[in-house]
């Protein structure tokens, strides 16, 4: 299917918008989501965007796939071909993406099994509690801790009353 000549600017605008869009959606997905499962999904999208960008780097108008088929086998002309190197690179980076994704999902299963939640905020909180417990240290920034050496002054009557009837 040799591509008929179409206006290149639209194609360029489309493809690059697609690639960059995927990357940004991926990164935004990871940053915005609280659920760690969704983050892994978004990461996969970002990886896919990166791969598309790489393949676009090797594309040439009117070029044919870098595989010698039937008639090309005899003539062995490889001049009008797309650049094979980015394709080789993308092969590797797709499999890297899947490798990382598999490990991430294994960790998610374990986290869910141990902490029982998938929300990053709770996972972080539980982790910090564990770290502080293992280091036998009480975290300075946690709310229960009184600031500095002096214990917190007891709340005045009004707030105490309001607190316990809340």
């Amino acid at each position: 299917m040799n591509p008929i000549e179409m206006n290149p600017v639209a194609l360029q605008w489309l493809l690059y918008f697609g690639a960059m869009g995927l990357i940004v959606i991926g990164i935004a997905g990871v940053v915005l989501h609280q659920n760690i499962f969704r983050m892994v999904l978004a990461l996969a999208i970002a990886e896919a965007g990166g791969n598309l960008l790489l393949v676009i780097a090797g594309f040439r108008f009117g070029a044919v796939a870098p595989i010698l088929q039937d008639d090309a086998l005899q003539t062995l002309n490889t001049s009008n071909m797309v650049d094979p190197v980015p394709q080789a690179m993308v092969l590797t980076s797709i499999v890297i993406g899947v490798g990382i994704q598999a490990l991430a999902l294994a960790l998610i299963i374990r986290i869910h099994q141990r902490y029982g939640t998938l929300n990053m905020r709770e996972v972080h909180a539980c982790m910090m509690v564990d770290i502080n417990k293992s280091a036998a240290v009480d975290d300075l920034l946690s709310a229960q801790q009184p600031r500095g050496r002096r214990p917190l002054p007891s709340p005045p009557e009004s707030t105490a009353k309001r607190a316990n009837n809340e």
């Binding site: 990357i23 991926g26 990164i27 990871v30 760690i36 983050m39 892994v40 990461l43 970002a46 990886e47 965007g49 990166g50 890297i96 993406g97 990382i100 490990l103 991430a104 960790l107 998610i108 374990r110 986290i111 141990r114 902490y115 996972v123 972080h124 539980c126 982790m127 564990d130 770290i131 293992s134």
Partner: peptide, 20 residues
Amino acid sequence: QASSFAAAFRYLLISGLGTV
């Protein structure tokens, strides 16, 4: 341990974005 899984996951996430 549970905390090392969580730490490894968060590390993986940041590193994954770095990879992208």
